[in-house]
Design a protein around this nucleic acid. Structure first.
Lengths: 206, 206
DNA sequence: TGGTTTTTCAAACACGGGTTTGAAAATCGA
DNA sequence: TCGATTTTCAAACCCGTGTTTGAAAAACCA
């Protein structure tokens, strides 16, 4: 049932997803996408009704991939201790540092959006972000059962911010003056440091 | 000794600094700057040798303002407890949320750079960022005297990441689905939450 | 003051961005 | 197969960007 035109569509989506993850919305040009996808420039307007429409579809795919991944994760966490669950959560947040799969690209795209949120993104976010936040908040609630919602939200955001700073600045951190090279072997170490600091921080909130 | 042309220079620098802080390098056009500064468009090339040159000068000013501020802060911290010093550090990181002074604008500009660092910025950073990092690391060393440098760097970066996520996403967080409005009164509360979580986290790193 | 230098100005330039066009090619359905 | 529809394609279009130009105005200084 895959019509020939669907192949073009798929090639564009694939190339666009990778480029958006790598360079963000503004940093990715129509011409770069069609060059990578090896299709004609007008195809984007024909199939997606413009750059915005293409981005919306890429974003939808990213949301879908991430939601599936998170839901699978949520199932796992019910069976393990809160400490292990937190460690796993952090590891997943740091995953774009080493992995190149779809979920990592989705996280990268969302990282771009934290700076200059697109109108397209804001709309999708306000509709579909709640489940993510709920997962993180639920995880932290296992450590702080008596904390109010606002505090938990702040703690969750802080935790994600802690992780994303390493994902966003990986290249910068590797060079001088920091010199923090993050290869595959050090990811576990990094996740461990963040997790331990966080666990201890949650253990006794004055 | 202020020649008339220096007035033009100053007006451009002033307008550019505010616009760069608000919209970042790519988001700020020459035409927007000259409109705000009420000078001719060619003046930027005449006085600063192009947009890059102007940005370099703005960045230098931002570094200078921030360094002075941090050094003043460093003096204070020697006299107070490590807990108070940490709280003050966090408060300063969150300052752009409420303040509109030069230091806050400098922090905002640096926040933009965390995503797509300009070549101009990278060069300045590699030369002048070390002192900042040292200050934060020194602060955390008071909590973790036995930790190695790498762990301290990670902890410092994580702490700054925790703060910057609120500064960067302030508008997004205020709306649905998060609904975390950060007005002047809640900054102290936010700084308190982050500080307490961090202190406890540093208190007993497993 | 008068000649020189510095600074301003409006206009145009070259470039890359997303989009549109209209015809050719390919595909589809009867 | 053949007419209708869908899809591709190269080229152009329009707009906003940073920069350059050359002359007019202003400021400077002997």
């Amino acid at each position: 049932m895959t019509r020939p035109s669907d192949i073009t569509r798929e090639r564009i989506l694939n190339a666009a997803e990778r480029l958006f993850a790598e360079r963000g919305y503004d940093g990715t040009s129509i011409r770069a996408i069609v060059a990578k996808a090896r299709v004609n420039q007008a195809a984007i307007n024909y199939h997606f009704d413009g750059k915005d429409g293409l981005y919306r579809d890429v974003l939808r795919g990213a949301f879908r991939a991430l939601t599936e991944d998170q839901l699978a994760h949520a199932e796992e966490t019910k069976a393990i201790s809160r400490e292990e669950a937190l460690h796993e959560f952090v590891r997943r947040q740091l995953r774009p540092l080493v992995a190149r799969d779809e979920v990592s690209r989705a996280l990268r795209i969302f990282n771009w959006e934290t700076v200059r949120p697109t109108a397209v993104f804001r709309k999708l976010m306000s509709e579909e972000a709640a489940p993510f936040m709920e997962l993180a908040v639920a995880l932290l609630r296992r450590f702080l059962p008596k904390a109010d919602q606002r505090t938990l939200v702040v703690a969750a955001l802080g935790l994600m911010g802690q992780c994303s700073v390493f994902v966003r600045n990986r290249e910068q951190l590797a060079g001088p003056p920091i010199g923090l090279a993050l290869d595959e072997t050090s990811i576990d170490w990094l996740a461990g440091v963040i997790t331990r600091l966080t666990i201890a921080g949650l253990a006794q909130p004055a």
